[in-house]
Design a protein around this nucleic acid. Structure first.
Lengths: 216, 216
DNA sequence: TAACATACATACTGGTTGGTATGTTGTCAG
DNA sequence: CTGACAACATACCAACCAGTATGTATGTTA
């Protein structure tokens, strides 16, 4: 049957179109939330950026809140996984891996001025919406656990000082990163972030055992 | 003349009433901005909290933006001066003074969940409004300079390590404080802030010269 | 081919927003 | 006693907001 070969293909195309519309909405929402915060991001603006209409939006998402939650789950979470969780599982020297991840933090003016997407949303929405808070907390926990895990592993191989408390150090690293990102965003100045990264790298090197310093 | 004694008094009372109205508006605005951010803070809510009407608001301030700027100048800036600039000029041991200021950071649930007022506003408004950014940058600069200054003074008296770069260390301290405040706000958990403060205090003690450690 | 579901598009609504126009009251110099 | 002004109070407005009701083109199924 000719239609039997054609129908599934059409259906698949249709579904792929729908998924692409959904994806464009997520990307546009992510961008607008990044620009002006969740509450101030206008649905109409998101729709214009995405190039779709309100009917499409409310077909894919129940509400603005649901769209925001989806952005956290499907845009922000994978981003953190790709930049912090996976690179730390590479098996390289733990401190080198951490330094590498820190140095890969984008310092282009546009990125610095916008701040950290994860932190932005957490600061705005965690006190106001439990749905956001729980999703964002999961991301922060995964990030901290990935850092703590690689530090623990380093301790067993002798490449990280034994007197370092992995969980504490992981929390401190994330606090410093977010703190510098905040200061740099406030100053609207990439230099602040670059200086911060240098300080962070210096601190990370101090986590090596005294006899095992690779550089500096 | 009886009226000559009465008139100035009445006029002074009137002026004091007006200033009180202005002050109530600033306090209410500060509180609402702290709760939900500047953009999402509704003027009507601020007016209800302050117990005044829109006419009074627009008599004292040109716009919502002007009200926000006044909150930065007249509420947030004095608060930072009172908590960080003045206490560090007390002439005490620099590290002790810094530890004291850090330990005086409020850790009540309500405070932790709301985050840092300065950082909240900076994160939200610095990329969007130059008026906010400049005012907030002045506060951050004063804070950093106060810390750097006390560290420099400590170096001349031998109570702070000479290899510490005061400006760098001051920036790092502020970054860590804001970073932990962010994490604690996101987690909505005072324990995160308390643990952060312990870590900060430990780091501050490490700034003493090796032979001059007072405790720990 | 007729009924039906998917994936939208369009037009609209009630509520809220910052801002304004105008009215009112107490104070005071002349 | 009388304009004049400071310090509001009240009523209102256009713009914008998230959300909805309804229409429709396209592909699928019986």
């Amino acid at each position: 049957m000719l239609s039997a070969r054609k129908s599934p293909k059409r259906r698949a195309t249709r579904r792929r179109d729908s998924e692409r519309t959904r994806e464009r909405l997520l990307q546009a929402a992510s961008r607008e939330i990044y620009r002006s915060g969740f509450q101030s991001a206008s649905l109409d603006t998101i729709l214009t950026v995405a190039g779709v209409t309100k009917g499409a939006l409310y077909y894919h998402f129940d509400s603005k809140e649901a769209l925001g939650h989806a952005v956290v789950d499907e845009v922000i979470a994978p981003d953190v996984r790709g930049k912090w969780v996976r690179p730390l599982q590479s098996g390289k020297d733990p401190i080198d891996a951490l330094i590498g991840a820190v140095q890969r933090i984008p310092v282009r003016p546009a990125d610095v001025r916008g701040g950290c997407q994860l932190n932005n949303l957490a600061q705005e929405m965690s006190p106001l919406d439990a749905g956001f808070r729980k999703r964002l907390a999961i991301i922060f926990d995964a990030w901290r656990e990935a850092v703590a895990s690689v530090l623990r592993e380093g301790q067993t191989h002798g490449s990280v000082r034994r007197d370092v408390e992995p969980a504490d150090a992981a929390g401190l690293l994330i606090a410093i990163i977010e703190g510098y990102a905040s200061l740099a965003k406030n100053a609207q100045d990439p230099k602040v972030m670059k200086a911060g990264i240098r300080n962070i790298v210096g601190w990370l090197r101090s986590l090596r055992p005294p006899g095992n310093r690779k550089r500096g």
